[in-house]
Amino acid sequence: MNSPQQDEERRTFREEASSLWLITLGPALWAVHFTVVYAATAVVCAKLGTAYLPYLRLGIAALTLIAVGAIAVIAWRSWRQWNYMTNQEYSHGQPTGEHRHEFLGHAAFLLAVLAAIATLYTALPAVFIAGCG
């Protein structure tokens, strides 16, 4: 049995459970994109050879579009949650539900921007490097 205090906390933070998904999803998408791009390039170069590079590049381009698109959706949703346009609030120091909510949106937004830049930088070598050597 949970104590009444634990139940109280559970109720208070339940509404932020989805925010925690939002905050992790941007960097997670970057990490998955990074791993897949590097692993696919290594496998294609080691096992198939340069003849298959055009397909690899197309694949990386498609994967990058999907990843950046998904990160953009996350960025948009966290931007809305931050609610900056309404109250121009940068600091969320109060122990209130609203401040927690906006803080998580703010952090998720910044992480999503970072993840989008990192994802694009990860894909750049595939565009500019011609061979496997």
């Binding site: 694009l120 070598p125 490097i129």
Partner: peptide, 12 residues
């Protein structure tokens, strides 16, 4: 970004 785009083709 500019530096990356400029330097990546130097590697091959």
């Amino acid at each position: 970004g500019i530096l990356l785009v400029w330097t990546l083709p130097l590697m091959p």
